Simulated assay, not measured.
Amino acid sequence: MKLLTAIAVAALSLPFGANAFAQSNPSGLTRAEVMAQLQQAQAEGLVPARNNDYPPSDAEIARNREIYAIQHGTDGAGATKTAGAPAGQAGAASN
């Protein structure tokens, strides 16, 4: 009798257990959208940020913008001045 009860409980619990592991709501963003958001944040200078400098300071954002402009060959029109040096010279001065 105990075996029959155990089988009945196991059989009834299978449909409920399967639903617990199913992903009913997919993520709202696709991989391409996440990559585009990450690239935009990098261009704006918001990432990378050090753990002890969060949220990033204005100087860190300006430095990140300069580094992004150098790495991606942009004109740096969006770059700001860092420590009183022109945007083009600030990156060279820090190296």
Rank of each mutant, 00 (worst) to 15 (best):
G78P: 01
T80N: 08
I61H: 14
L14A: 02
A41K: 14
V47F: 13
Q40L: 06
P55S: 05
G45E: 02
K2C: 08
V9I: 15
I67G: 01
Q39H: 03
I61P: 09
T82F: 08
N51V: 11
G88S: 15
F16W: 11
L12C: 07
G88C: 11
M1G: 02
G45F: 06
K81D: 06
Q37G: 04
M35E: 06
T82H: 13
F16P: 15
R50G: 15
K81H: 07
E66P: 03
S27D: 10
V9F: 04
F21Y: 05
F21Q: 03
P26K: 15
V34M: 14
F21V: 11
G28K: 08
V47A: 08
A49R: 13
G76Y: 07
P86T: 06
A87L: 00
Q42Y: 02
M1C: 02
L4C: 06
R31C: 01
T5Y: 02
M1R: 01
S13N: 03
L46Q: 05
E60H: 04
T5S: 13
T74N: 01
P86K: 09
R50I: 14
R65I: 10
L12K: 02
H72F: 07
A62Y: 08
N25P: 03
A93T: 12
Y54P: 02
A85D: 06
K81Y: 12
G84L: 13
A83I: 12
R63K: 13
V47H: 09
